[in-house]
Design a protein around this nucleic acid. Structure first.
Lengths: 201, 201, 201, 201
DNA sequence: GATGAATGAGCATTCATTCAT
DNA sequence: AATGAATGAATGCTCATTCAT
């Protein structure tokens, strides 16, 4: 096996395992078993377990930047802004759809809770989704929301957006004196138009 | 100390630690040190470490459901749908803003990577944010996007929404034969109207 | 509940548990659950776990001595020596047959190995029994041993006898310079006559 | 150190400790200290503590079967049945005499009670021995038992035989409706002839 | 006497990492 | 470069015992 290939191979096996079981629950033993190399070999290519994980992140982040998002053939001179948005979204989706393992790792699913905990969290998330879906359906029945809106998709889109905002603004010590009202106004101003019918006040 | 209070106190200390260090990096030893109880005491109230974490999740999920999201005074008879959306968002933000620790735990930040890894992931996420922000600024300069749009907020909102969708549709084995074009269309139809000026095509 | 009765009751519950699970695998928690008393109560009657076990041994040893073995109505003036032997044996059997739990405790079965280990030891003992049984059957076929001899009983009787002798003479440091030939001669002289037909040389 | 030897060495040290202190009172820490290996090393050769013990049992059971009991040079064509019995007994004694530790482990002495408990049990067993010895001496004085009978040996042989029978027939749930009279008759028929003088009725 | 919450010494086991071959 | 036996710090958990009420 050529040098370089061996490192690559270990990385691929590690990716599968990290994606499936998370960082903490993936043992070096698992990786060497899957890769079919000796225990010491892994330390020839990587400083330690953390380095294996970081190498993975960097590899696929680079891939995303190069292949997916920044691919330079989107020209605002030839396509409309809305088409541009569409293509950006389309490519990002493709990137994740292409590699389920990378997807799992980046989306922090595989980062590592014992199986049961993971299941509990999913149950909670499902419940949140249900609540929003119900709201949306109510809006449809009341004639404020178009009938053909994909409510499940929308619910998750809204949920994901909000959680990200919460993470960004509240999970750190900064932004302590934030104007929540203003923030909520801004968010609804962005999400509202795409959800409600123009007729809805 | 009254019965019940002790369990509550341990839970609060554990919350702080899980939020700050993650599940795996929080040791039982840390919890008992912070709580000032003996090693065995924690096992009087919780089956094991996992049970402490689950108890936390359940406690705060319940709190969210009761206090924040489902609080029953939002009446569509008296407020408009757009106001309703605003209040829902407002309350969810309040819930997370109220308790930074819960926020961190729920947003899966504290779930557990060694400090350095966590930092690397944040760097990546910042880069993604920058890319989207740049796109948005371009749109502003080109007159397709209103000047007063909060581009950082919008970038994260879009990013969060997309990642959640990716997680939902791609991280599991189901949905294998998804129509990505259609999906991307739907998403841009929801996000577009709130971002672009009506004049943008 | 009268004083004294409570101690007795705890002792009986402990007996059941020690017999079923062994000393080490029986927890104080098990005993108080079965006895329906508080954790502290047991320490009002017994110094510690060891004391519970010792109390049991002493109680049932005394019982054996008084009721079973030494019961004074065996009079060599009225019965033959062989009848005397028979009655002694009969009474000892009754004692053990009467109380399976005491039986298990005294016979050191319940003294304490994790279930699987116990099973392995039994398998070994069965194999030993089989080997001796085969020998005896060979003797029957060769006409040296009476046809109506209970070979399983005899095998265990011989095995038990030998193991006890081994325990007595070899498991301690004394008796280092034992004449094994002489010892084996003596043992066969005692066991032989009851097993072989007079015609066997 | 050659491969295989290390496992063997650990096993030998463990044998000493199990024999001296019993299963429960022997800690992994003791074994590694005695063996002079690191804590993790023991888990390279054995699944867990139980596996160490099982390995010991299997090793020495195999040894007994091969070297001691089943050694094939006993030919009933050339030796008498009584000689055959003698040699079987002789070899079994040798096996146990050879290795005091194995002896202790197999005879369940080392299986595990805290030191003081063990001593108490021995005291009881001694008392039982004394009672039987006294009976035998009485028989000698009365002229029913030969003067040169080794009464201590005989007492233990009888005791061992009886306890084994009790264990076999009473310690389990089967054999509930046993005819104790018949059983006692059979046992005395086997033990009697080797103990009593023919003149004793 | 009775209670049971609190204790903490003690234990088996894991697993990333090293290093002599 | 590759190997894998050896390492030992670290960790979650148990359970007999205590003691304030």
């Amino acid at each position: 096996m050529e040098p370089g290939q061996r490192k690559e191979m270990i990385l691929e096996k590690a990716k599968k395992l990290f994606a499936a079981q998370g960082y903490y629950q993936t043992q070096i033993s698992d990786i060497i078993r899957e890769a079919g190399v000796a225990r010491g070999t892994i330390y020839q290519y990587f400083k330690n377990k953390e380095d294996v994980f970081i190498s993975l992140l960097e590899k696929y982040y680079g891939k995303w930047e190069k292949d997916a998002y920044l691919a330079g053939d989107l020209d605002l001179a030839t396509i409309s802004p809305r088409e541009y948005l569409f293509h950006r979204i389309r490519r990002t989706l493709s990137f994740f759809a292409d590699d389920q393992d990378v997807c799992r790792i980046y989306l922090r699913m595989g980062l590592g809770l014992p199986g049961e905990l993971e299941a509990i969290i999913r149950r909670f998330e499902k419940k949140i989704e249900d609540i929003i879906v119900n709201d949306l359906r109510l809006g449809v029945r009341n004639g404020h929301i178009p009938e053909d809106l994909d409510v499940t998709l929308t619910a998750n889109l809204m949920g994901g957006a909000l959680l990200r905002i919460a993470y960004l603004y509240f999970a750190t010590d900064e932004n302590a004196d934030l104007d929540l009202d203003l923030l909520a106004r801004k968010i609804s101003a962005i999400l509202g138009p795409g959800i409600f019918l123009p007729s809805a006040k």
